[in-house]
Amino acid sequence: MQKQFLYGILLFVMMAWGLNIVAIKILVQNFPPFTITGLRILAAGLVIFVFLYVKKDLQKMNPHEFGYVALSALTGILGHQALLSIGLVNTSATNGASILALIPLVTNLLAVLFLKARMTFLKICGVLFGMIGIYFILVLGGGSFTELSNGDLFVFLSVIAQALSFIFIRKASYTLNPKTITCYALLMGAGFLVMLSFAVEGQSIHQIGAAPSYVWWVFIASAIISTGIGNLCYNFAISQLGAGETAIFLNLSPFFSLVGSVLFLNEAFKWIQLVGFILIVIGVLLGTELFERKPRVERQVGVSVSK
Rank of each mutant, 00 (worst) to 15 (best):
Q2C: 09
Q2M: 11
Q4Y: 09
Q4R: 10
F5I: 14
G8F: 14
L10G: 06
L10W: 07
L10C: 11
L11N: 10
M15R: 04
M15H: 03
G18D: 04
L19E: 09
N20E: 03
N20V: 01
N20M: 02
V22R: 00
V22H: 00
I24S: 11
K25A: 07
V28S: 03
Q29M: 11
L39V: 07
R40C: 12
R40F: 12
I41M: 13
Y53M: 09
K55R: 10
Q59A: 11
K60T: 10
K60R: 07
M61C: 00
M61P: 00
N62A: 00
N62P: 01
V69R: 07
L71G: 15
Q81D: 08
Q81I: 02
Q81P: 03
G87T: 00
T91S: 07
T94F: 13
N95W: 13
G96C: 03
L102E: 02
I103D: 00
I103C: 04
P104M: 02
L110Q: 04
L110V: 02
L110T: 01
A111C: 04
F114L: 03
A117H: 10
M119R: 10
M119I: 14
C125D: 05
G126S: 07
V127E: 12
L128C: 13
L128R: 02
I137C: 08
L140K: 14
G141Q: 10
G141M: 09
G141T: 14
G141L: 04
G142K: 03
S144Y: 06
F145N: 08
N150T: 15
G151A: 06
L153K: 14
L153D: 03
L153Q: 03
L157W: 10
S158Y: 05
I167W: 01
R170L: 04
A172D: 04
A172E: 05
S173R: 12
L176G: 05
N177S: 14
P178Q: 03
T182G: 00
C183E: 13
F192L: 14
F192D: 05
L193Q: 02
L193G: 08
M195I: 15
L196K: 15
S197K: 10
S197Y: 04
A199P: 14
Q207A: 13
A211C: 07
P212H: 15
V218I: 14
I220Y: 13
A221H: 09
A223Q: 13
A223L: 06
I224Q: 01
I225P: 15
I225R: 15
G228L: 13
I229Q: 05
G230S: 10
C233M: 15
N235A: 01
I238D: 13
S239Q: 15
Q240H: 08
Q240L: 11
T246N: 01
L250G: 08
L250I: 14
S253A: 15
S253R: 02
S253E: 12
S257H: 06
L263E: 06
F264G: 05
L265K: 00
L265S: 00
F269S: 07
I272G: 04
L279Q: 07
I280Y: 06
I280H: 01
V281P: 05
V284A: 05
G287K: 06
F291D: 10
Q300Y: 08
V301C: 04
V303I: 04
S304K: 00
